[in-house]
Simulated assay, not measured.
Amino acid sequence: MAVLPILHLTLLPLIIYQATFFASAAVVDPTLGFTLVSLDNSNLVIQKPYNVPVNQRYNFTNGVHQFWIYPTDKSFKIDSNTQPRTEIRISKHEYTSGIWQFEGYGYVPSGTSGVCIMQVFGGSSSATTSQLRVYDGSLTYYKSPHVLSQNIYNRWFRVNAIHDVDANNVKIYIDGVLKRDGVGCGAGTHYFKFGVYAQNDSSNCMESRWKDIKVFKK
């Protein structure tokens, strides 16, 4: 007769944990309450190795931006010592205050590793406030042990990055699920970028694809 109460007490913490886990993993629309910002081609500035034509590192077909880079490529300008990149910088929507949000659908083919595929540029303690990187099929926040999503190769995933400048806070949603909620890197002139930007331990070729790019603000 005493087994059932003991079993109940044993299972209760597990039930509470599962309920908390599933509640925290709820899918939401992070854009609710935000206002859509108008974007056109003039806002999309392509940065690529300075010594090659755009079409050798970038393609846009049927609404999909395709970027690729090699670790031996040059920087995006002759006087820069940064790593090679092929990225789009969202221009004319730089900001220094308020709450801004990037939304887009990303795709990373298998084999791509050691690369930043999306970033919030600008900060006081770092050149960037946020970076989403890919290492061996996992999407990470910078090169921390904080894995945002595993097994991202060869599938489309939704990215929402919300930057609250005044609160110095960055939230990252993947497929509508909050994966990171933490401090940024301070004030600065900020803007969004997406594509491929080589980092440490880069693969022989780095590629990402993006579609349905939007910017929101409050």
Rank of each mutant, 00 (worst) to 15 (best):
V37Q: 08
D79P: 02
D79Y: 04
Y17D: 14
H65C: 03
S80K: 04
F67H: 05
A19F: 14
S38R: 09
D40K: 01
A25H: 14
Y95A: 01
T35I: 05
D40Y: 07
N62A: 15
I78V: 11
V45R: 12
P49A: 00
T10I: 14
K74N: 11
G33C: 03
L14M: 09
Y95L: 00
P71R: 00
H65I: 00
T20Q: 12
T82F: 13
I78N: 15
Q18D: 15
T10R: 10
H65P: 01
D40M: 05
S91Q: 09
A23P: 08
L32M: 13
Q18E: 15
F67P: 03
S38I: 04
F76T: 05
F60W: 09
L14I: 12
I46M: 09
I46G: 08
T72F: 12
I46H: 08
I78T: 12
K92Y: 13
R85Y: 04
L9W: 13
N59T: 04
A25L: 12
W68H: 06
V45A: 09
T20H: 14
Y95D: 01
T96F: 03
I90A: 00
K92H: 15
I88Y: 10
L44M: 06
T31E: 09
T20G: 11
F67G: 02
S24K: 09
F60I: 03
P13G: 06
N81A: 12
V64N: 06
D73K: 01
Y70H: 07
V45K: 05
G63A: 02
I88A: 09
V45G: 05
S91M: 07
I88K: 03
T72N: 14
I16N: 13
L44C: 01
N55M: 07
Q18W: 15
F21R: 13
H93K: 08
T10W: 13
V64T: 08
F22W: 05
N55S: 14
Q83I: 00
I90F: 03
R57V: 10
R57F: 05
Y58F: 14
Q56G: 04
H65Y: 07
R57M: 06
S80D: 15
N41A: 07
T61Q: 14
H8L: 15
Q18L: 14
Y95C: 01
V37S: 05
G63W: 04
Y95N: 02
V64S: 04
L12W: 10
P84G: 01
T72M: 06
T10H: 10
N43M: 02
G33T: 01
D79R: 00
L12M: 11
S91P: 06
F21W: 10
I69R: 02
Y58L: 03
D73W: 03
K77I: 01
L11I: 14
L32D: 11
N59F: 06
T82Y: 13
Q66S: 13
F34L: 08
T82W: 13
T82D: 13
H93N: 13
N81G: 10
T20F: 14
A23S: 06
L44G: 01
S24Y: 10
N59H: 07
F22L: 10
N43I: 00
H65G: 02
L14H: 11
